[in-house]
Design a protein around this nucleic acid. Structure first.
Lengths: 158, 158
DNA sequence: GAATTATCGTTCGGAACACTAACGTTAGTT
DNA sequence: AACTAACGTTAGTGTTCCGAACGATAATTC
């Protein structure tokens, strides 16, 4: 007969050790997972992914660009960019036209339909960030962004 | 003839748009990637991975445990834990013995050799954190850990 | 006590992600 | 002219995270 309070007690009831709990690399991984799940869930309601969103935002805010330039700006690998733009082009959210000045390149441009779609995605992303950052004050959110940017800038530097 | 300063200039030289640059979910993803690369590179010099490290630390700091308990504490999926412990057991860093009180369970224990190995890994992980957090002051590192813990605690809560 | 329900370790496989290699095409360099 | 390099594209690899299912065992319910 089982004791009700010691039911499924593991050999040792201790939780995550402090060493692990305060490991920044681990916390970053877990934070990224949470963020990824939340963002994908929201964006999926509009049939989009984070990659689609990144590409569209970059096209809107930094203007038309070649696929290589888009890759560099978004961090999406150029071999993955093909499918992302393929999907966006199929939905008429972007247009791919050959660059007359350099025939190796495509000039990718966001369409009016793409802008409309993007404004929906913008809203979904805002909701994602709100859900993700719910436990933090707005000062804390700003500080977190600042620290993460410093980290990224440092390690992305060439 | 190419101009040397405009060599490979993309259609539009603008960089990552601000909207993208300050997106916390994106920054978390990039930070996690940097952290993962650095940690793996260091741990690989001792033939280990982050999973091996997490398991060993948890066994040392929280004591012997079943595989299910280990899974819960480390966040490693129980189906992946099998191979991790298999590797550690092959190297004699842990021992898996059936639990006499519950024959479904294995009791996993870290061996003296495992502790010795772990002290090496501890050093490598410390070096990883130092490399990862190089651009931050020690106050900033503490603040980053605090913020990330708040985030993780909130989203890991059941 | 028998039948059901749940947990354990384990195997298999899938989905997403980041990336490499290679190719034909085009441009730039020597 | 010959070489080198970048472009978009396809195919494929390794890792990570996860769900499904299984036999074995334990706990719960009738």
């Amino acid at each position: 007969m089982p004791e009700h309070d010691d039911h499924h007690a593991p050999i040792n009831p201790a939780a995550v050790p402090a060493r692990l709990r305060s490991l920044t690399s681990r916390l970053l991984g877990r934070g990224a997972l949470h963020a990824e799940r939340i963002s994908n869930a929201h964006l999926a309601t509009a049939g989009a992914t984070r990659w689609h969103y990144s590409a569209l935002v970059t096209l809107r805010d930094s203007g038309p660009a070649s696929q290589a330039a888009l890759s560099e700006r978004t961090g999406i690998h150029r071999s993955d960019m093909v499918a992302v733009l393929g999907g966006l082009a199929d939905a008429r959210y972007v247009e791919r036209t050959p660059d007359p000045a350099d025939r190796r390149r495509n000039i990718v441009t966001i369409t009016p339909a793409g802008r409309a779609h993007l404004s929906t995605l913008d809203r979904l992303v805002d909701e994602s960030q709100e859900e993700l950052l719910a436990p933090l004050t707005s000062a804390e959110r700003a500080e977190l962004v600042r620290l993460l940017q410093q980290l990224d800038d440092h390690h992305s530097a060439r």
